[in-house]
Nucleic acid binder design. Structure first.
Lengths: 108, 108
DNA sequence: CCTCAATAAGTAGATCGGCTACATGTCGCC
DNA sequence: GGCGACATGTAGCCGATCTACTTATTGAGG
């Protein structure tokens, strides 16, 4: 999967995995990997800046903790983040309709 | 629809609209607009550079003509372009599976 | 004991595609 | 004459994602 296909779609995906329960960065990586069937293996240089961006935007809130001697920063969805996530899901449906309307992917 | 959501998805869409018949730039814009239900209104500053990029890459071939005093550059899909288009359609299906696996868009 | 993989979080800098804004010119209609 | 649709193009900005790097702890295996 090409790198820049992700552009603009990553944010809602991150918000989606922290929706059911707060997770720390590394766990978010693993959750994305699992939910995508192993396709979405984000480099840390993508994920961590993205998390900070989403926190600055007010869509995530973070808290430090220490588990087994390792420091974790756990992120949870804010109410603003929940709204953005819902909007993102709608936008995805629109985007999908647009692409498939143009691509007609059935026509191999 | 956010601007950079298009990243990496525009190329196959352009190739798709010239697949059935060669079209000139302006007609490609209109075709994309129509096939997308009015959602995909590309600025010329996006489309024309993209066309040149696709031609440089060998996926499109162009030819000038004049119709009603207006100069047109008509693009047609090359065989290399057809392969890339087919691959792009497959990649789209993968991408869609990944996003929906993570997003679970049904869960509003 | 030492090394290496996994866990955990981060930064600096490059890349590049789509964007805004601008430039050029024709045609047909009012 | 002027305006909107037709038609093509360039210059330069923006910013999300990437590569490559750094730091640090824990636990397993030799």
């Amino acid at each position: 999967m090409k790198a820049d296909a992700l552009r603009g779609h990553l944010d809602p995906m991150i918000l989606a995995v922290v929706e059911p329960e707060p997770l720390h960065g590394y766990a978010i990586m693993e959750a994305l990997l699992e939910r995508s069937g192993g396709e979405l293996d984000l480099p840390t240089g993508t994920l961590y800046p993205a998390l900070r961006r989403l926190e600055r935007a007010g869509y995530l809130a973070s808290e430090w903790s220490t588990v087994g001697g390792r420091k974790r920063r756990t992120y949870q969805l804010t109410s603003a983040g929940a709204k953005v996530l819902a909007a993102g899901k709608q936008e995805w449906l629109t985007f999908r309709t647009v692409v498939e309307g143009v691509l007609r992917p059935g026509e191999a």
